[in-house]
Nucleic acid binder design. Structure first.
Length: 196
DNA sequence: TAGAGGATTGAT
DNA sequence: TCAATCCTCTAC
């Protein structure tokens, strides 16, 4: 399977890219432990709306990686507890990103269960904070190139448009009217979707 | 430089 | 429903 090219990430419509990422495979190779999973749930974020860290194009020390070109990892700490993994999209100075919210485990499941301290695969990657832990993703991967580094995304399974469910994003009530944007995408009836 | 709050999760 | 937990951002 082929690693996604730079051009995939440069599309100017982040919601379009978020939808296209469904079915793709996220791979990490951390300390010799290769793990991967099929992306089954995503959310889009754009500088044009309040839910985004780079709203109105405001650059800070934390979000500056979003201002570069697409195809790089944006990892940050949420609630002081969880690391969240995003894919930077669009061209330089068009800060947009796709949050990966859930995966279907594929390879290296033994490492995932070990990292999660459980024997069961059930719901082990069904949430943005959980999948990063299962795949060994942390903030040291912030800014990594998704084409050449130890974290990358490759072609996966085909997802029919009819299988994709569109919904409002989770946890951004503070964004006012922008919280109503239908920018959350997930694969219908998939067992690994995060909480409803 | 201090204070508030967050793109979550799991236990109560 | 609520606490954990700490980094980031904002205001002073």
């Amino acid at each position: 399977m082929k690693v996604l090219s730079r051009s995939f990430y440069l599309h100017e419509n982040v919601a379009h890219t978020a939808k296209k990422l469904l079915g793709k495979v996220l791979i990490t190779n951390i300390q010799g432990k290769k793990t991967s999973g099929i992306i089954v749930e995503t959310e889009a974020y754009s500088y044009k709306e309040r839910g985004c860290h780079a709203f109105k194009g405001k650059m800070t020390e934390r979000n500056k990686i979003m201002f570069g070109k697409g195809g790089f990892a944006y990892v940050y700490l949420c609630y002081g507890v969880h690391q969240l993994f995003n894919v930077v999209t669009n061209k330089q100075n068009k800060p947009e990103a796709v949050l990966i919210r859930a995966l279907q485990p594929l390879e290296g499941t033994e490492w995932m269960t070990q990292r999660m301290q459980t024997d069961s695969l059930t719901r082990i990657t069904s949430g943005p904070g959980k999948l990063t832990k299962a795949l060994g993703i942390d903030r040291t991967l912030n800014g990594k190139d998704l084409i050449t580094s130890e974290v990358c995304i490759r072609e996966g399974v085909k997802v029919n448009n009819k299988q994709i469910v569109t919904a409002t994003r989770i946890g951004i009530d503070y964004a006012g009217p922008d919280a109503k944007l239908l920018w959350r995408f997930y694969i219908k009836d998939n067992n690994w979707i995060s909480r409803t």
